[in-house]
Design a protein around this nucleic acid. Structure first.
Lengths: 214, 214
DNA sequence: CCGGTATGTATACACCGTCCACAATCCTTA
DNA sequence: TAAGGATTGTGGACGGTGTATACATACCGG
């Protein structure tokens, strides 16, 4: 079960060059397969070709490294959302565009959970205030993190008159809850064995529920 | 941070009597505070006043013990749901009663997450097919596990004509997703700092969303 | 009563996170 | 340009974990 540490050609220089980056990359790779528990400090240093304690020059603890990996995962999710949003054509009706925006966020979220389960679990199964903190390390190219991107979509719904003003505050929590719950269910819950098409069906119904019930 | 192992009075008999039960209870207690990661085999054996390896006579591995704890947590959740359901008066309109049933399930779920966060996280943050498996260890007094209890509530909605037949299949996934997502959000997400009353507000809105959007 | 089988013990290993003292390198400043 | 402090990586150690293997004790059915 132990990872066969890929033996790098034993760096010739005493200094590494960019050890922090190397450790972070190794951590991301570990999280990618295996989730948060797989992010083990010693393995990361091994992959960077460095002695275990060297990590402590760049991260205060394993938790600290894990938080950095988590931020990277959230950032990747934000990028995926932005990509999905960018595919939208402004279209004729602002109401349709707003609805499509919300849907794009949901679709990107669920797709990310499916395609990068390890990163997804690392992003959300680790304590730490996920979304409220303004931290550029978690953001995408727009500088917004996933939660803020969801907020933008909801604002469009409000502006387009699809969402009434009294229902706007806190709406992100409702939408996020539903989509996140489904993601977990598909990832490690009873829906794990669903075929891709079946999963798509449930996803569509869920997004419809959010749209109608918000 | 290490648990001060409560030193039991050094059992006089060679045999323990009911070590499996003792280990399971210790595991549950560990999970209760600290969640799944806190379920450490050696600590459980310490609390049972027994040498570490003794555990292997009753559990194949730490994972195995963790699964047993998880089953106990799911069972506790099922009991909480049953209790909430039992408070309902059949009432005049079956439609109202059906709606109240679904709401009771949701309320019990969210309350359990709030009151027993450690057990809740253990129940759901551990792999293993949670709900589909027919396993009496996960069930409440009715013999139904949490997922099946949700199914019962949805069946009532169907019988009362609130839910159309074409929307019934898979409806548990939609409802479960929303409620579970919110629970996670409140537990370790951005909604952690909400006051109890604020949380209640969001909960009510979410349950309404499910009811309308299903 | 005796022997097999279930249960708990002893010892050991590999791995982990982390602390401490030390060595090599770099960078500023005199 | 030489010196010396600050950074960064090394070496060794400690206590913790899960688990394997061999052994000791107690129970139970013939």
């Amino acid at each position: 079960m132990a990872q066969a540490a890929v033996q790098l050609p034993a760096r010739s220089t005493y200094r590494h060059g960019d050890l922090r980056r190397a450790l972070l990359d190794a951590g991301i790779e570990l999280a990618r397969r295996g989730g948060p528990d797989a992010v083990v400090l010693r393995e990361a240093t091994r992959r960077a070709g460095v002695v275990p304690n060297a990590a402590y020059r760049h991260f205060a603890s394993r938790q600290d490294l894990l938080q950095a990996v988590r931020a990277a995962a959230l950032s990747a999710l934000a990028v995926a959302m932005e990509r999905e949003l960018a595919r939208l054509r402004p279209g004729a009706h602002p109401a349709d565009h707003a609805r499509a925006s919300l849907r794009a966020i949901g679709v990107a979220y669920l797709r990310f959970a499916r395609n990068e389960p390890g990163l997804f679990r690392t992003a959300f199964a680790v304590p730490g205030d996920p979304e409220t903190t303004v931290n550029s390390a978690m953001a995408g190219k727009t500088g917004l993190n996933p939660f803020q991107l969801l907020g933008v979509a909801l604002d469009r719904l409000l502006a387009a008159g699809v969402l009434t003003a009294d229902r706007r505050p806190g709406a992100e929590y409702l939408a996020w809850s539903a989509v996140h719950g489904l993601a977990m269910l598909v990832l490690e819950g009873p829906l794990r064995r669903l075929t891709r098409t079946q999963a798509r069906g449930i996803e569509q119904r869920l997004l419809a529920m959010v749209e109608n019930g918000l």
